[in-house]
Amino acid sequence: MSNAALEKNIYSRAYIQEIREKITPIVEKVIKPNADMIDREGMFPRGNLQALAKEGWTSVTIPERWGGLNLGYVGLSVVAEEIGRVDASTGLVYAMHVGAAQVINIFGNDNQKDRWLLPIREGAIGTFSVSEKATGGHVWYNLSQAERDGEDFILNAEKSFTTSGGQADFYVVQTRTANSDDPSDHSFFIVNGHDEGIRAKAWKALGVRGNHSGPLAFENVKVSHRDLLNAASGDILNGTGTVLGLSAVWLGVAQGALDAAVAHVTKTVHKGFNKSLADYQVIRQKLAEIKIQITGLRAWQLDLARHYDELLETNQPLTQLNTEVTELKVQSTELADSAARVAMDVAGGFGYIEGVFERIYRDARGGIPMAPSNNLAREQIGRELVNLPLELWGDGK
């Protein structure tokens, strides 16, 4: 794909539609046919990511200097939604990869970008390794702490729910800062995913079975000082638009559920009454309600994406949109869950047969506990409303 083929105008519906049309062939010809196999076998979707990399989509937000398409957060939102529409596992891996690459794009120096961003066009995959079992969904708080080794660092950490765990070519790893007594002071490292000290545990789950978000251990992993990122606490997930990408995936899951439901009710005929399921008003209204909600959230998704692109263009921090992006995450993941339940409902008994309905039903639920989990997200928003600090910070209230 060439940027020259696009007249870049983030406010143009034609521009957004053109991006959607350009990603559609890979989604329909590569990712969609693999979705059932990825789910059934718990297979990591490396082939899907390689197909995306070949056309530059895994570098969607990266400047052309480092092999990217430079389509920004609008491009990411469209592409992540289209992938999520047919396979949540690939969508989740994709969004976390783009987020990790964007960390390096925003906070990395040119040397780091040369070494870690350029290989993405050849198929390299990145991800985050942030959360820890001991502190759960409080991803802004770690117990692990980096150790100094001369100029370099040693990492010993037990991480939980690392998407692409054991599969990624590089990890953006968060620990407490070496030699610091401040529990809110964190450092971020780019870690080679092929280091012998990295141990991944098996991933077996209800849904999104191909994303391999299992526990990951770093055992005496040495990291060069060259791969310490110049980022402060709070910059990584909130300051890179990662949660926005994840929201787009689950918006796509909702759309996929609606697509499957519409296809089923329009082709299924009750011959005794000579009516299709689509002839029943109650079914049409259930589907219409999901459609209305998807349309509203898509507009909100793209509005926030445009804001992100504008902030980057003017060198302003993305963190000023934290609360609104968290609100979007809650609504998009819960809409996916609602859409999957409606699809299962209108499919009747056929929804319980192994296939698209039961897979989407299981996958859709995965977005709700995903950091920031919706319960914690509501607590974060509520504490901000009443001017209280995050848990485990400040006075610990």
Score class of each variant (00 low, 15 high):
residue 254 A to F: 02
residue 256 G to D: 08
residue 256 G to C: 03
residue 257 A to I: 11
residue 258 L to C: 08
residue 258 L to V: 03
residue 258 L to G: 03
residue 258 L to D: 00
residue 259 D to F: 06
residue 259 D to Y: 00
residue 260 A to Q: 08
residue 260 A to I: 01
residue 260 A to Y: 02
residue 264 H to M: 06
residue 264 H to Y: 12
residue 265 V to E: 00
residue 265 V to H: 08
residue 266 T to W: 02
residue 266 T to V: 13
residue 266 T to H: 04
residue 267 K to G: 10
residue 267 K to F: 02
residue 268 T to V: 10
residue 268 T to I: 10
residue 268 T to M: 04
residue 269 V to N: 09
residue 270 H to G: 01
residue 271 K to R: 14
residue 271 K to L: 13
residue 271 K to Q: 13
residue 273 F to S: 15
residue 275 K to T: 12
residue 276 S to W: 03
residue 276 S to F: 09
residue 277 L to P: 13
residue 277 L to R: 15
residue 277 L to T: 15
residue 277 L to H: 13
residue 277 L to M: 14
residue 277 L to Q: 13
residue 277 L to K: 15
residue 279 D to E: 02
residue 280 Y to S: 07
residue 281 Q to C: 00
residue 281 Q to K: 07
residue 282 V to E: 15
residue 283 I to E: 00
residue 284 R to W: 09
residue 284 R to F: 02
residue 284 R to P: 07
residue 285 Q to P: 04
residue 286 K to W: 11
residue 287 L to E: 08
residue 287 L to S: 05
residue 287 L to W: 08
residue 288 A to H: 14
residue 288 A to W: 11
residue 289 E to T: 13
residue 290 I to D: 09
residue 290 I to G: 03
residue 291 K to M: 06
residue 293 Q to H: 07
residue 294 I to P: 02
residue 296 G to Q: 06
residue 296 G to I: 09
residue 296 G to T: 05
residue 297 L to Q: 10
residue 298 R to P: 06
residue 299 A to R: 07
residue 300 W to G: 07
residue 301 Q to R: 07
